[in-house]
Design a protein around this nucleic acid. Structure first.
Lengths: 202, 202
DNA sequence: ATTTTTGTACTGACCAGTCAGTTCAAAAGA
DNA sequence: TCTTTTGAACTGACTGGTCAGTACAAAAAT
């Protein structure tokens, strides 16, 4: 799986190990409280290697953010594409996919939640763009659902998309942190119900 | 207003100034990235004063959390009490009150969002208890709404309460960060609609 | 042969927490 | 009334330690 021409596989492996280590430590302690020495140690790598692969601690973190959000948006787009002509099912599938992603990459989700709404940090611009990208995927389905008459026409889809994105993120992290005994299906059912508008008694 | 026997008023003022300064800086930069020197400077106070009033940087932050969450839960309880026999209206009022609180104390809300789901930090226990308190207020209304038949009986009120709490927090902060031109009423309308189950077309 | 990693040592900046000393308003004493 | 004392509140220089980033020669992998 790594024997191609330029031999870049080894380096990529090292970068992955560093991503995983940084992810865990920053989710636990926060960015500033996590030292480069710690990251290197947890990744089983020398400190010099960190600086051979990344320009700085900041850049390591920014690339980690791009990498993670890239995976997430790809997963959302895929879930959405699985239901071409049923916008509401798209939303449902994206919620499920979002929950599954967060379950798999808990540390990343926690760190995203901690950093996404912070101001005045070096990576704020990067993060804002990434958020835009993810929210746009959700919004597209909402717009389609409005167009097809499945959702009320007076909805502010930008606001609702941001709300759904944030809600899924925060509820999933809360679930994994404080109520890990719940199943993904339980959590999905609640969120799906809210989005479908079936909280009220029938 | 501050001339009573022991003269404790001055100290309280200093503590308030420190709370405000710490709140702003930690919301912007995070706890670890914020130095005690910075907090003291922004509060217009010498560094020694911080340590005269608080045992440590950690304790200053923990007391700040307790103080802020105390205000929030008090506001929620009050909103809830304003509609004694209408659980759904209680929820609605709490959402509005939550949004208003966050609008007023943006910095605190951001910091809460950043720290609430972090693991392995010194103040985790404090924060978990505070979260429990706030979620319990929401849950009480949900339980009442289920009992009165206004919400479906098969709802997991604990999960839904956590979801609503988290959703309001994250949507409010997202609103103030990325779409500040919206009005509180817009945001309230979206959240209220979701909770009332009216997202779907009529 | 070239890229990548290692390990150790180093630097300069920054930072939490301490402490000896200062300020000042109010109480006690004259 | 005027002086002295008290003590809570505050100050800011200082200390011991930590950390991001650098340097580089030797080793390992490709």
């Amino acid at each position: 799986m790594t024997s191609s021409r330029t031999g870049g596989g080894r380096r990529e492996q090292t970068r992955q190990k560093l991503f995983v280590a940084a992810q865990q430590l920053i989710a636990e302690q926060g960015f500033s409280a996590t030292s480069v020495d710690e990251i290197a140690e947890r990744a089983g790598v020398a400190k010099g290697t960190v600086y051979y692969n990344f320009k700085s601690k900041n850049e390591l973190f920014e690339e980690l953010l791009r990498h993670g959000v890239g995976l997430l948006t790809a997963a959302l787009r895929e879930a959405s594409a699985a239901h071409p002509d049923a916008p509401i099912d798209q939303l449902d599938a994206m919620i499920r996919e979002g929950l599954a992603f967060i379950e798999q990459y808990r540390a990343f989700a926690r760190l995203l939640l901690s950093e996404l709404w912070r101001t005045n940090r070096a990576w704020q611009n990067t993060l804002t763009l990434l958020r835009e990208e993810a929210v746009a995927v959700v919004r597209a389905s909402l717009d389609a659902a409005v167009a097809s008459g499945e959702l009320r026409a007076d909805l502010d889809t930008g606001l609702v998309a941001a709300a759904i994105f944030g809600m899924v993120l925060v509820v999933a992290v809360d679930w994994l942190t404080f109520q890990p005994e719940r199943s993904l299906d339980d959590v999905h059912a609640v969120l799906s119900t809210m989005v479908r508008g079936r909280l009220a008694a029938e």
